[in-house]
Structures are given as structure tokens and as C-alpha cells.
Design a protein around this nucleic acid. Sequence first.
DNA 1: AAATTATTGTATCATTGCGGTACAATGATA
DNA 2: TATCATTGTACCGCAATGATACAATAATTT
Lengths: 235, 235
Amino acid sequence: MSTLISSVDYLPGISIDCVIFGFHDNQLKILLLNFKSTDWLAVPGGFIKESENLEEAAQRILEERTGLTNIYLEQFHVFGDRNRRDNEVMKSAMAAGGNIIGPDHFLMRRFISIGFYALIDFTKATPTPDIHSDTCEWYDIKEIPTLIYDHSLMVSKALETLRFFLDEKLIGFNLLPEVFTMNDLQNLYETILDKKLLRTNFQRKMLSLGILERLDKKMTGAANKAPYLYRFTGK
Amino acid sequence: MSTLISSVDYLPGISIDCVIFGFHDNQLKILLLNFKSTDWLAVPGGFIKESENLEEAAQRILEERTGLTNIYLEQFHVFGDRNRRDNEVMKSAMAAGGNIIGPDHFLMRRFISIGFYALIDFTKATPTPDIHSDTCEWYDIKEIPTLIYDHSLMVSKALETLRFFLDEKLIGFNLLPEVFTMNDLQNLYETILDKKLLRTNFQRKMLSLGILERLDKKMTGAANKAPYLYRFTGK
DNA sequence: AAATTATTGTATCATTGCGGTACAATGATA
DNA sequence: TATCATTGTACCGCAATGATACAATAATTT
């Protein structure tokens, strides 16, 4: 009857939570789950099997929520404060989903969560709710409601890390389709960094990196010069 | 009889390991423990009490090994590979110390370790072995032998992170005494980054940060101009 | 006490990177 | 053919950094 997870299958006291970024309509978005029959929103998470490495567990969790494999991801922080989870909230959330949890249950223990952020091509993802949630939907990063537990903190820390490594690791390209215009790329950067960039200088900088292959022009049908398409060539 | 830790006191399956950096004689050093009656070297580590936040646990572990409180530290990575620890090695290490461990013991389970790096004033630390080790000593970062488990990986990852944030977070100053010369500071930077820097430009850059207070000169007795002493004033 | 020596503090010049502006090129429409 | 919006690139100027030059100074040597 109950589909609740048990401690038999997973490492106790450790979870993984994933801040999954996507980009669409010039908006940076993340995937959030809605606990069944509640208003509570949470970042997708899961647990680690005895047979899995950490990154494998994260990849599995991400695949379950997005349908994608081989996702770009990085661990960015461990959240382990003594009181980071309110167990009453957990209990209520589970109860609303039809699962009654006793005080000695696996999930009532203290949990330490490893935060991963993931970058995916929005156009390829198929958001899928998990067993405890009604919905799995994209939320504009500028309009994130208050989240459960310390998940709001997770999101801001993930975003901070994403911004910090955007240039350093050239990770932004994971958020775009294979082929894109310089304008697409600039919009992505401006959205992530939340500031305007000068078109000419941005173009100069990106081209100087030597990581872009210039393809055919993109004939938009608009009454102006057609932009080139580019492909990211990690080198 | 046995002073071995038990799972009653600590969170199961999670450990903390600390790469503790110090600076002396123009050498960057880390503290390593030597398992009793073996050649095995390891980074100091410990476990997390139910009552502790992660950073509190790390501070406790660091105080036990160095005698210092209020240490600068940061978590830098989680090490959780399925086979990161060889339990036979763990068993032997414990046996050499007089502790016999059964196959179902707390320590025989899979462990996930949170890596912290710490920066301390070498002149103030009192390295102290733990219950399982004979010695707790400084090792020049350039001459680190092979370490137990994945501890070699931990050290290189910690060093990489230290280098990356050296300017960003101005963390180098935690490795020096309160008062130092510009030459001391430059030697520290050159050692951490493992490359020579131009004296004049280094001085210009450090002074332009506006984080140094110039004190009296340091009369060394040498036949040359006496350098100023500086104090770090975080702002 | 004047010359010497090693080191330190600072000024100066050259190069690079980046913010900002100007302008030519272009694909469609009027 | 003229117009328009957008794109690609060249150019100017400033700030940061690399590199060199030189004056200042604490002791020693003459």
C-alpha cells in the first residue's frame, strides 16, 4: 500500500537535492515539486543507494524528474544544520500524501543533504512529478515562492555558484540548444547575471574564447541583417 | 578497554576530514596523522554529533588536533564514492592500534566524508595526535607521501580550492602571524601559487586593496633598508 | 665620514583587457 | 531605390597589470 521509501534501500541520514536550471523565453527557471495536497514547494531530491556513487545518484534523481540522461551537474554545498528540517512539516507533507510516518521512521531522523545544481536544455526536458508530489513545474528564478525547509537557501546558493563559475567553467552553454545565435547567448548571460551587457563587447569576448564554431546564417525573415548561428565546441 | 567510537554518539555513515594548512619557513604545510604502529598517513577527521552543526563539528575536530579555537575553515567538497574506503585497511589500522572491529561495526559501513580546509597560524598550533595515531605532524605540501583511502585526492582538491579563492576571499592572511612584512606575504603567495611574482607589482596590488595597516619598520640588523611591518585589517 | 652593498618603496612606461562609440554590411520592406 | 532594424567589426580611451628604472635606507667597509 504505502510506497514510502525505507532505510533498507538507501544510505541513512543523507539526501541529495538538485537545483535544476533551464532557460526559456529569456527567463532562467528551476524545477520545483509540489507536495501532494499542500502548498509546499521543494527542490527535487532523493537518496543514495548502497551501490551508487554520489554523482550517479544525482544523475538518477535528475533523470527521474526530467527524462534526461548525461546531465551537466556539480555539487555545490552540503546543508547539514542541526535544525535544517522541521520534522513536523515532513510528517504533515507525507500525511497529506497518504503516508503515515511514525516518530522512529527513517525520514524522521536528522538528514544531511548534498546540494547539486544541474543545467539542462529546457527544450528537451520532460518535467515529471515524483511519488510525493502533484506537480513538477518550471518557476522563473525571479518569482520563486518561499520553499520548504532550507530549500530557499539552497536555490540562492546554487544561483550564486552558477554566477560565479559562469565564465570560469563556460557552463552556460549547457542551457542552450546545440545551435544558437549570439543574441541568444547574450540573453542567457544577461538573465543569469541579472544585468545588461554591451552587445559589441560581449560578442568580442565570446569570439575571442575560441570555443564557438560559426555556422550558416539564420534567415529569420525579419527586415534586417541575419545573424550567424553558432555551435559550442568546448575547444 | 577499547576507546573506539561507537555509532551511539555520532551520525552514522558521515565523517568530516580536515586539510589543515600552515605556513612556515617559506613552506606550505599540512597536518597529517600516523595510524598507530603502521606507516599509514591520514588527514585528521572525525564524526558529527547529533547536537552539532557541520561547522561546529569541524571546529571541534580542529581544536582537538591543534589546540586552536575560532579557526578559519570552509567546506570544499564531499567525497562519497562507493569504494572510497577500503574496509580491510580500516580494520588493519584499527587492529594495529589494539581495537578489534567486527564486520558489522559502525566503522565498517560505507562512509561519506565532508572535506573542510582550514587555515591556521603555524606559530600558534599545538599538533596533537588522536586516539588512533602515534603522531600528528606537519608535512611540506611538496613532499606529501601517499595517503590512506582517498585522502591524497582530498589534499589536492583542497589545495586547488585554496589557490582558487586566495585572492577572491583574501584568505591567505589567516596563515600569517598578526604582524608581517610585505616580503613575508609575497613568500606566502608564491608558495601557495607555486610561482614567482614581481615584487613591485605585488606590493602595489596588496597596498591598493586597502586592507593593510602600515606599522613601524622592522629593524632586522641587516645591512639594508628596513621593511615596514603590516597588520591585516579585513577592511 | 664617505663609499659600498643589499634590500625596500615608489615612479614610470608598455601592454592588455574591457567599456563605450561609430560605422559599414545586410536582409527585408516600402 | 530608399528606408529600416539588426548585426559584425573597427576604433578610442581608461584601468589593470607586466616590466623596468631609480631613489631611499640600514648596516658594513674603507
